[in-house]
Amino acid sequence: MHVIHSGNVTVNTQCDYAPVTEEMGVRLPLLALLAKEPAHGYELKQALEQTFGAAYPSPNIGQIYVTLGRLEKDGLIRAVAVEQSSRPNKKVYFLTQQGREALIAWADGPLEGPRLRDEFFMKLVLAPMTGIADRGALINRQTRHFLGLMRELHHLSETTSPDDRYAHLLIEGAMLHLQADLDWLERCREELT
């Protein structure tokens, strides 16, 4: 975690929530895809590729199976074996109630900081598909949250001594990031709703 100390202001430039690990990045999309319909591992991989295209690096099939295994262990999904005539049985996964709740909690929760795209983008793309949330509502919620952050930064800026130039630059930087994200949200709204 990079921490910059400048006078009496400390700004964490790195996230202090769970970083988007490889697993993390696959886990939620898989849940979301399963919310739509039950599927087996290979179908999920194809669906991921179809949905995100080049925008999102698709995990290999091994990662998917590992993740599915963990999800099953956490009780978020369950698997049913389906017999196949010429091949070994395959496992078809479906979402449990617990899994659905976890998904909704994720969708409803605002995301912090400027590097939202990865996760928020996923929400935005996946939400209407699964019927778990409305895109407009997602964008509104995110916009409000960012505006709240911006307001906080304003307040911070006002209450920070004008002599503390580095602090102000930092605040300014954060604000500009936020602003870019807000603009992007607006763009999303124009394009997607």
Binding site: V11, N12, C15, G136, R144, G148, H155, T159, T160, S161
Partner: peptide, 24 residues
């Protein structure tokens, strides 16, 4: 959309000495 801007999560800061924890 028509909504109030949410108040700062941790309430008003008393002074600028507090650490800002900016998400992102």
């Amino acid at each position: 959309d028509d909504a109030p801007i949410p108040a700062a999560r941790r309430g008003p800061r008393r002074n600028a000495g507090d650490v800002i924890e900016l998400r992102g």
